[in-house]
Computed example of a mutant assay.
Amino acid sequence: MTPLRRRMIEDMQLRGLSERTQETSTRAVRQLAEHDGVSPDQLTEEEVRQSFIVLHTEKRLARASCTIALCAITFFSERTLPRQWAMLDVVRPAKGQKLPVVLRPEEVGKIIGLIRLPPYRVCLSLIASCGRRLLEGVRLQVPQIDRGRMQLHIQAGKGKKDRSVPLPPRLLPLLRRHWCPHRNPVWLVPSPGRRGEERATATGPMEERSLQKAFRLAVAEAGIHTSASVHTVRHAWATHLLENGVNLHLIQVWLGHSSPTTTTISTHLTRTAEQQADAALEAFTAGLS
């Protein structure tokens, strides 16, 4: 590891940024530097500008990916070097609002049923039943399962926020059956190791990329022609709760959102809710000629 990379990581640690943010930020700075073939601290403002033009026009990266790269190079320039680049305000992509893909409950069940390996099936069942994020599902630790209160405790989630979500009674026996064969004291879904025989002593969880790959294969096999991801299952959970009368603020707390606006976007209504609205509008306008 170069001294410059180590310093940037230390700066992010001092700022309290998560390990995942540290990883994506250092990768983004490295890729920008590799584009110009120089050390990151030797980049000029014009070279950074041209790199972002390539991201926008040639690679056509999504807004979220461009924003990650922008935040990374901004942190690096202002905190690690330090250096002020006025052009960073210009390259910030415009905000948009893209409604999330929402799967019906029966589609989620079909996808889970098509996942053959038990660790992936159990982990996706956990995400689907409790509305957890991908990493929150993969990295669930056994002590976070509160059988007495029937809750899952999420510690230091996104934004370093703790929260609790209800644990459906039907899910607990599934988790127990999966855990009993390996009895890892920390991880519910431990890393299988190279031979798949080291789960009991594994010191880390299963890789999230493995679950994402298994999910994509199951979606294709199910014949679902949408750009669904594991995170889509979380949207389906929230939307299903909203359609069945659960208070929006309570869903916001369970999702771990700071703003109700984020929750509203996540709970994009399906056809069930639209049909309910159609019926209400029809009743409201019944007296019109």
Results as ranks from 00 to 15, higher is better:
G157E: 00
I154R: 03
P181K: 07
C130H: 03
T24S: 14
C123G: 07
L188I: 05
S164V: 14
R170F: 11
R170T: 06
T264Q: 15
K110A: 14
E78T: 08
R121I: 01
L103W: 11
R15D: 13
T57M: 08
W187N: 05
R234F: 14
Q144L: 02
R27L: 11
R92K: 15
E197F: 14
T201P: 03
D162H: 08
D11G: 00
G193C: 07
L43H: 07
V38A: 13
T201D: 05
L126Q: 03
H235F: 10
G256Q: 04
S289A: 13
A86Q: 10
E58H: 13
V122D: 01
L250R: 14
A283V: 05
V233R: 08
A273C: 05
E106R: 02
C123Y: 04
R176A: 12
G287M: 06
S18P: 08
A236H: 12
G131A: 02
S39Y: 01
A69H: 15
V48F: 05
D89T: 09
I53K: 10
G37D: 04
E46D: 14
G131S: 03
G109R: 10
P105F: 03
T239C: 02
R133K: 04
R216C: 01
M150F: 07
R83Q: 12
L103K: 06
A94K: 15
D41V: 03
A220D: 05
P82F: 10
T261L: 14
A202C: 09
T21C: 05
R15V: 01
V90I: 09
R199K: 12
G16K: 00
R121G: 00
L88C: 04
G131L: 02
P105V: 05
T272I: 09
K98M: 09
G37Q: 02
L126E: 00
I111T: 04
V91H: 12
R30Q: 12
R6A: 14
M1I: 04
I73T: 11
L242S: 08
N247H: 13
L288K: 06
P82A: 04
A64C: 06
E208S: 15
A33N: 04
V165G: 04
V230M: 06
E107Q: 15
H240T: 09
M8W: 05
R147V: 13
E106V: 08
A200Q: 14
T80Q: 06
W254R: 03
Q42P: 01
R216T: 06
T226W: 13
S51Y: 15
S210W: 02
P118H: 03
V101S: 10
R121W: 00
L241W: 06
E10F: 08
